Amino acid sequence: MNRHQSTDTLRGPRPIGLGNTDQVIAGTQHRDSPPGPAVAASQAADLDRVRSAVSDALAAFLTEQRVTLAAMAPQLTPVVDEVCALAEGGKRLRPLFAYWGWRGAAGATGPAEDDAAVLRAVAALEFVHASALVHDDVMDGALTRRSRPATHIGFAARHGDDGLDGDADLFGVGAAILVGDLALVWSDEQLRRSGISAAALARARTVWDVMRTEVTAGQYLDLLRAGGGLPGPEGALTVARYKSAGYTVQRPLQLGAAIAGAAPEVTEAYTAIGLPLGEAFQLRDDVLGVFGDPAVTGKSADDDLREGKQTLLIALAQERADDAGRRLLAESLGDPTAGPDQFAALRELIERTGARARVEERITERTALARTAIAEAPIVADARTALDALAVAATARAA
């Protein structure tokens, strides 16, 4: 077995215990002393600097696009406004992973690229993310996103407010598809105009193209699974891998490595980090989608159940449920008319079957695996510290 692989924890005859989650949250502290207050404060300040620079890069780009679209027709302003609203939210995890992927590798190759240009380049990941969110919400029929109406819901309401002809829901879906497409187009433009060198841009394009193909393929696999294809826990993990996990951690890290012109061993180390950590990130998302606090997550905790999302939580619950539990899943999961009592019963079933505990255990195991890979990665120390902090932020979060 490869040292970055682990035994599949999903096939055992009974749920495995959660283990020592304190050790996982503490991370590599069983090997190294925790950073002192001054180091921790400096690291937090640097993470905030990257987040702020990414936000500034997005704002500057969107200001230009607002002028361009308004010159075409003033009626296009709501389109750019929607992309702006999507770009304003979020934790900036993908740009952060890409930036620190670059910093980690640039220490060995020499930081030939301008820091500000790299920050503009990695900001393009937020447009890819915005596109995926909009299209995913259309496919799922989601109602909210980040404490506001989902894009297709908002444009359907605009249709009615403006007294337009035709079906408001179809208008909303059509507008959302176009908003998502536009965000994807702008991701390319943001990367191309970032100011990184032609050589770095050419290297980055290879990772960039693979990442965007995977995201789109993953969306289809999600659609297929919702229709009964890719059954069971392994199917759920396949969808998570390609729909979200890869473009959240692995590909951003590799994008940074490509910009830096990193050695192959760095790219391999980033794969060893990115695959388990990206999976843990998505599994945390799935747990929050059912058990999260809506005031913190920005979306209803009922949405995933109402939409019938076929996550690992559901796959494991189906495996362990009795006949009554399977009937409940068949009748209530994905039922748009389901009420609070049915959702509460579904949550209780997920808990009672041990599905939630098993997912939490997998998050713990995959996070620990990733943090071990970070500790062993051939990258500079400040990047290792930053990536370890990001690993915790990505998996031990409430939103």
Rank of each mutant, 00 (worst) to 15 (best):
L119I: 02
E279N: 06
T297Q: 03
T337N: 15
D169P: 00
P78D: 01
N20L: 10
V134T: 06
A200C: 00
Q5A: 14
R327L: 12
R251Y: 15
L182F: 12
A41N: 07
R347L: 04
T385G: 13
Q254N: 13
G110C: 07
T28C: 15
A44Q: 15
L76T: 12
D285T: 13
R158Y: 07
T267N: 05
R356S: 07
A258M: 06
R148I: 05
D169Y: 11
V118T: 01
E361W: 14
G289M: 03
F281M: 00
R145E: 02
E82W: 08
G292T: 08
D115M: 06
A123E: 01
Q5C: 10
G256T: 00
D56E: 12
L328P: 14
K309W: 08
E351N: 03
L390H: 03
I196S: 01
D303A: 08
I273T: 03
T364P: 07
V179D: 10
D46R: 15
R146W: 13
A338N: 08
A217K: 14
D46F: 09
E376K: 14
Q29H: 11
A217I: 15
P111E: 06
S300G: 03
A280G: 01
I177Y: 12
R120T: 02
V207R: 12
P37Y: 00
G172D: 01
G27I: 08
A53K: 07
G227C: 01
S52Q: 13
R212K: 14
Q342N: 01
A73T: 09
P37H: 01
P231A: 03
G339K: 04
S33E: 09
D46V: 13
D22V: 14
G89C: 02
V359P: 02
T367V: 11
P34E: 05
L178T: 14
K309D: 06
A157N: 05
A262S: 10
G89V: 06
R397Y: 10
V392E: 01
L369W: 02
P111V: 11
L191N: 05
V134S: 08
E376T: 15
V24F: 03
A338D: 04
Q190S: 15
A156S: 11
V122C: 04
T206H: 11
A73I: 04
V249M: 04
D341F: 00
P336A: 09
A381I: 04
A262P: 00
S52V: 10
P149E: 11
G339C: 04
G36S: 02
D81V: 04
W186H: 14
D209W: 05
D136W: 02
S300C: 04
A317H: 04
